[in-house]
Computed example of a mutant assay.
Amino acid sequence: MNNLAVRLLFAAVAIPVALFCIWFCDFSRILLMCFLGGVGAWEWARMAGKMYKGPDMRYLSLASAVALMLAWVFSRGGFFGYAAEPAIMGPTVVIIFGIYIAIAFAKVDISNLFPWLVMHLGAPLYLGLWGGVSVLLLGSGQGFEHCYAFLLVLLSMWVCDSVAYFFGKFAAGKGPFGRHAFAPSISPKKTWEGSIAGTITTVAFVAFTAPMAFANFGVQITLPLGAALGLLIAVAGQAGDLLMSALKRWSGTKDSGKIFVGHGGVLDRFDSFFLAAPTLYLVLEFFQKLS
């Protein structure tokens, strides 16, 4: 079976499973997000461990990212019928910082201590503390209507990546279009032409779907504001893609993992999402407070 067939077969199974988790209930949604954040942190720690000598941090990175994501869940409240506990986030962050610093002082050579600590702390902070904000785009209760904003980000990332890939591969360099490398030292195959095409398509997609998707946030989404949010999602998503590409190139890693058969790891498939979704939530919360 060729690679394309394997990719399509896996997608045909994985996409319905993910959609069921998002649709079914609070527990399945949070479990899905903890899985993605935890495995992503595992992959990050594995790549960082290739560059600096020290103890294996994969298990702690996974547990720390999940802990931070759950701290967002319980600090916001509403999930599982629990009231908000905003004080839970601070102690969780302090404990994780303390554990990482203690391990660094006890187990890591002084010549590598600071870069080791920064790179390994990056896993739970980026995937759990920052990426965990994405769970706040999810609502409580059965049904997709509670998760339209979350689904919109996922679909926008797919639209942007797909259009950028196909335009850059098949149109850039032909006819009136040139071929200009977007970030040659990080991802040589990406082009400005593909990036612009993906951005324009995403802006149009979000502009016309945002009013329904963001209705639960109590923000009146006009067409210009929807377009601006689309631009934000497209730019943040592509920045997240480049960030993870840089991490992989820095560590000499082709794919962050193999958990998604034929597709790579969490940081290969959700690199855009983990920067774009929290960014969108914070902007929506800003507009909500202005209303």
Rank of each mutant, 00 (worst) to 15 (best):
L152C: 07
L152A: 09
V153L: 06
L154Y: 10
L154F: 14
L154S: 09
W158V: 14
V159H: 11
V159K: 08
C160D: 13
S162D: 12
V163M: 09
V163H: 13
V163I: 14
A164E: 10
Y165K: 13
F167E: 12
F167K: 09
G168T: 13
G168D: 08
G168C: 11
K169A: 15
K169Y: 15
K169S: 15
F170T: 15
A171V: 14
A172L: 01
A172C: 11
G173N: 07
G175T: 06
P176K: 01
F177T: 05
F177N: 06
F177G: 13
F177E: 11
F177Q: 08
G178Y: 03
H180M: 13
H180N: 14
H180F: 12
H180T: 14
A181Q: 15
F182H: 11
F182Y: 10
A183I: 03
P184R: 00
S185I: 14
S185E: 13
K189C: 09
K190H: 11
K190E: 11
W192P: 06
W192H: 08
E193S: 06
S195L: 15
I196K: 05
A197C: 04
T201C: 14
V203Q: 03
V206P: 01
V206L: 02
V206W: 00
A207W: 01
T209A: 15
A210R: 00
A210T: 01
M212Y: 12
M212C: 15
M212W: 13
M212N: 15
A213Q: 01
A213F: 00
F214I: 04
F214K: 03
A215W: 05
A215C: 08
N216A: 14
N216D: 15
F217D: 00
F217P: 00
V219N: 00
P224S: 06
P224Y: 02
L225I: 05
G226E: 02
G226C: 01
G226K: 00
G226F: 02
A227R: 04
A228G: 05
L229D: 04
G230R: 04
L231T: 03
L232E: 07
I233G: 09
A234C: 03
A234L: 00
V235I: 13
G237K: 03
Q238Y: 07
A239G: 13
G240Q: 02
D241Y: 02
L243T: 12
S245G: 08
A246H: 12
L247F: 14
L247C: 15
K248D: 10
R249Q: 10
W250P: 12
S251V: 07
K254I: 06
D255G: 14
D255H: 13
D255L: 10
G257H: 08
K258N: 15
F260G: 13
F260R: 07
V261P: 14
V261M: 12
G264D: 05
G264E: 02
V266S: 09
L267F: 11
D268T: 05
R269M: 10
R269L: 12
R269Y: 07
R269K: 11
D271C: 08
D271M: 04
D271S: 13
D271R: 07
L275T: 10
A276L: 05
A276M: 06
A276F: 02
A277G: 10
P278Y: 07
P278L: 09
P278H: 12
T279G: 14
L280K: 07
L280G: 11
L280Y: 04
Y281P: 07
L282G: 09
V283Q: 11
L284E: 02
L284R: 00
